[in-house]
Structures are given as C-alpha cells and as structure tokens.
Amino acid sequence: MNGLLTVVVLAVTLVAAIATVVLIVRDQSPPGDRYFALLGVLLLVLLVQAVGGCVALASTERQVEGVTFVAYLFTALLVVPVGAALALGERTRWGTGALLVALLTVAACEARLDSLWSVAGA
C-alpha cells in the first residue's frame, strides 16, 4: 500500500475536519461550495487509494487479510457521501456534526488499513 497516499488522505481529512469544526462552532449550515469542493478532493484521493489498495493487495507477497482490507478501503470511500447526505438533510450544526463523525471514521479506517498492512509485513 502506498504510504504517501495514506499521508495525503489523512492530511486532506484533517483540513476538512478543521473546516467542519469551524462550521460547527460558528453554527453555520449549510456548508458552502468551497467546503464541498474540499470533500470532493477527499473523495478523489480516497477513490485513488481504493483502486491503488486493491491493486497493491493483488500484487503483494504479504499475508494481508484481504476481505477486511478491501472493506476498510471502501468504508473510507463511502462514509464521506453518507455523512454529507446526513448533513444536508439536517441543516443545523448537528447535521454538520454528522460530517465530522464521517471524517473521524475516515481517519480510523486509515489507521486500521495501515496496521492491517504492516502487521502482515515481511
């Protein structure tokens, strides 16, 4: 698995999480276009990671728990749009809070992906 990509995912997630916290504190909803552009960037990086992760899994010698690994790759990818849908359905700071939960889930998935990969390391 590409370690640099994981760092990029975590960096974008962190920026998005900070932006989300700012929104929650200011009680701003709905989040604006720039915010959703940021989520779009995150989705794009997660998509690249999902594809790249599957390729890396297929071509590695490591004994990675394949099903779990792929499940985490796609959970990280799918949790962002689900969180966005929850936020758009409830235009208060609580709805935006659901997005923060989604972003924290992405971070948790990244941590699990990293440990699944390194535990299986040579």
Binding site: E90, T92, W94, V101
Partner: peptide
C-alpha cells in the same frame, strides 16, 4: 429521532452497524 443531536447519534450508530 434523527434531528438535532440525534443526527450525530444516527451517524455514529450507522458506522457501528457497518463495522
């Protein structure tokens, strides 16, 4: 049940349902 603070609860429960 899913409005206000319930939104966050739904989000967390959904994550645990999947996990």
């Amino acid at each position: 049940l899913s409005s206000g603070p319930g939104r966050i609860l739904v989000a967390v429960y959904a994550v645990f349902a999947v996990a």
